[in-house]
Structures are given as structure tokens and as C-alpha cells.
Design a protein around this nucleic acid. Structure first.
Length: 342
DNA sequence: AATGCGGGGTA
DNA sequence: TACCCAGCATT
């Protein structure tokens, strides 16, 4: 049996068959694929259920306010995914009349859908013969073919795409199961740490296993030490103990989410707030620092409580808004703020 | 080609 | 702590 045939046979008995998005509905497949970008299955499942209940089809999503989408995405991270999801839903309605195209090249024109996600949607929904190349597949193929070098590097990645294309099953109707089989093999057998080679359907001709290099491949990403950053976040309360939140710019960290106003220093907080927010503050002693780690830097946050005195009506209510604690918790806010409020 | 972009699970 | 996860967009 060739590579694809062995994966298909393995998947029939050992694959995952009960995931909630394993349906031939491009909307649900698309939604799950976006949520699963750089995010593990167990994390996605509850978000997927809530999202689908609120937005049962692409028309419902396209006509919803972005704030509602971000609120349901809150805590899942990579918020550009939520903004792109909403924009793509609008495009599917306007350009394709609400029906997702089957062609991966067309799917990849939608925001948030790259080559791998487009192939996954096309394979699961329409049985199109197009290869995926996610973290699982990169690891499986790098080991099986004995490919050295960081898989994020251009030359390595292009070899892997080429290989993935040649290994596709002959029959298009096998594409949904084959695509799922690759993901399942990477997630449950060919795992990053302790690969279960004894349970692997392609172990007999796996170069990494035959040469004892399962634990060396794929070549890990070269790491640099995380830069340190510091910020002061203002916990501004009004007379009714409501909290002032500021909508962040649409791009960058926590884009579009509601967050605490930030200043550079506790010493200049009052003057900075007056200049930037138009509020006169009485600051209180800072709360203990906490650390939030991102992929690319480490952020130390000093929470600084303050009372707003002599407030006039806030003029820019699209950017600045007073929230009760309950309102803040149900809005689109980043995880550190959710933790701080809890 | 390199960087920005979250958050959680895991050993 | 460090690595990894159903990657994509931007520069």
C-alpha cells in the first residue's frame, strides 16, 4: 500500500470521527478551520459551539456587528482572525451569493484563508484534491521523508508542499478522510515529544524512525530571548463604580478589543490621562504587577486604580465607554483584563 | 525572508 | 520554563 492508502486504513479504525465540525457544510468547516489556526482542538470546541449557536450560517455572521463577533472570540486570541472572518462572510454573501466556492484558489482570496486552510475547506467540503500543510503535516512529512531544516523556512516549506502534493490519494472521494487522517496522525501518533512509532501506519519506511532521528526532526525553530515591555493600565472608576474602557486600534495587539487605557508611567498618569482622555484623575496606590506572555514579547503590567473626578459627558463614545463589571466581562476584552476583573 | 499576532496545554 | 498548536497577513 502507498502512503495515502495506509493513512486511510489507519484512519478508519484509529482516527477521530466525533469532532463537531466533521460535516460537509463549508460554513462550519470554514469556521472550525479559522478557529483551529494555531489553536488546539480542546480549546476550540466550546468557542465553536457558542459561535455556531449565535451565528448558524454565513448570512447571520455577515449581518452581525463586528463587536458581537469579537465578543464571542474573546479569549481565543489572534483577533485578526475574527475581523477577517467577519469580512470574509460579507464577501461570501456579496461575491458568491452566500455559497462558498469549491476552488481553493478562490477560497484563498478571502481574508484569513491561506493556502492550507483553503485546501482543508475544499477537501472536507467538496472532496477537492489539494494538499494541506499545517503543523501536523509538516512534522509527519519531515520525519517520514527525513527532511532536515526548520519547516518555516521557505526552501524547506516548498519541498514539503511538493511532497504533500505527490502523496495525495488517487481518488478525490478519499480527500475528506485522508485530510483528517493526516491531522489525526500528527495529533495522536506522530506527536512532537514522544511519537508512538509502534502505532504508526507508515513507520516501516519512515526515514526518521529508520535512522533513529524521531526526536531530532523536525528541526526546531531558532529561538531568541523574549523582549521585555512594561505598561501601566488605568482602572478608572466613576462615581457609580463603572470602569472606563478604550477600544483599541483595529490592527496590532488586541486589535478592536475593549481594554484599559494605558499610560507610560505611574508618575505621569494623571497628566497623561488629562491630555489623552480629557479626564481629571485622582490616582490611588498601584496594584501588584502581573506578567502576560505573548509569542514575541513579555509584558509586565502595573494596574493603577484611579477615580475620575468632575467628569463631563464623554464625547468619543465610540472609542471610550463606561462599563459595569458585568458589561465588561461580556464584551470583547483580552484575557489579562478578564483575569484582572475576576 | 522575517516579523507580528494570543492564549492555553503540556512536560 | 520552553515548546507547540488544523497559519495568515504584512513588510
Amino acid at each position: 500500500m502507498n502512503f495515502a492508502e495506509r493513512l486511510l486504513a489507519w484512519h478508519a479504525t484509529h482516527g477521530r470521527h466525533d469532532l463537531p465540525w466533521q460535516v460537509h457544510d463549508p460554513y462550519r468547516v470554514w469556521l472550525s478551520e479559522i478557529m483551529l489556526q494555531q489553536t488546539q482542538v480542546t480549546t476550540v470546541i466550546p468557542y465553536y459551539a457558542r459561535f455556531l449557536a449565535r451565528f448558524p450560517d454565513v448570512a447571520a455572521l455577515a449581518s452581525a456587528p463586528l463587536d458581537d463577533v469579537l465578543a464571542l472570540w474573546s479569549g481565543l486570541g489572534y483577533y485578526s482572525r475574527a475581523r477577517n472572518l467577519h469580512a470574509a462572510a460579507v464577501m461570501v454573501m456579496e461575491r458568491f451569493g452566500g455559497a462558498f466556492p469549491a476552488d481553493p484558489a478562490l477560497l484563498a482570496e478571502l481574508p484569513g484563508i491561506g493556502r492550507s486552510t483553503a485546501a482543508a475547506i475544499a477537501a472536507f467540503s467538496f472532496s477537492v484534491r489539494s494538499p494541506i500543510l499545517d503543523g501536523n503535516v509538516k512534522r509527519v512529512l519531515a520525519r517520514w521523508a527525513g527532511i532536515d531544516g526548520f519547516t518555516g523556512e521557505k526552501a524547506i516549506e516548498s519541498r514539503l508542499w511538493q511532497l504533500a502534493q505527490t502523496l495525495l490519494p488517487a481518488n478525490a472521494e478519499d480527500m475528506p478522510a485522508y485530510t483528517q487522517a493526516q491531522m489525526d496522525l500528527g495529533a495522536t501518533v506522530c506527536t512532537p515529544r514522544k511519537p508512538a512509532c509502534l502505532a504508526c501506519p507508515v513507520a516501516e519506511d519512515c526515514v526518521a524512525r529508520l535512522t533513529g532521528r524521531q526526536h531530532e526532526l523536525p528541526t526546531p525553530k531558532p529561538r531568541k530571548p523574549l523582549p521585555q515591555r512594561h505598561t501601566v493600565m488605568l482602572l478608572i472608576r466613576d462615581a457609580e463604580h463603572r470602569l472606563l474602557l478604550e477600544r483599541r486600534a483595529p490592527t496590532g495587539i488586541w486589535g478592536g478589543l475593549w481594554c484599559l487605557p494605558e499610560v507610560d508611567s505611574t508618575l505621569t498618569a494623571e497628566t497623561t490621562a488629562l491630555a489623552q482622555l480629557g479626564l481629571t484623575l485622582q490616582t490611588e496606590p498601584a496594584l501588584p504587577d502581573f506578567v502576560h506572555v505573548f509569542t514575541h514579547f513579555r509584558l509586565t503590567v502595573t494596574p493603577l486604580p484611579a477615580r475620575a473626578v468632575g467628569i463631563g459627558p464623554l464625547r468619543d463614545t465610540d472609542r471610550l465607554r463606561w462599563f459595569t463589571r458585568a458589561e465588561a466581562l461580556s464584551a470583547g476584552i483580552p484575557t489579562p483584563l478578564r483575569r484582572l476583573l475576576a
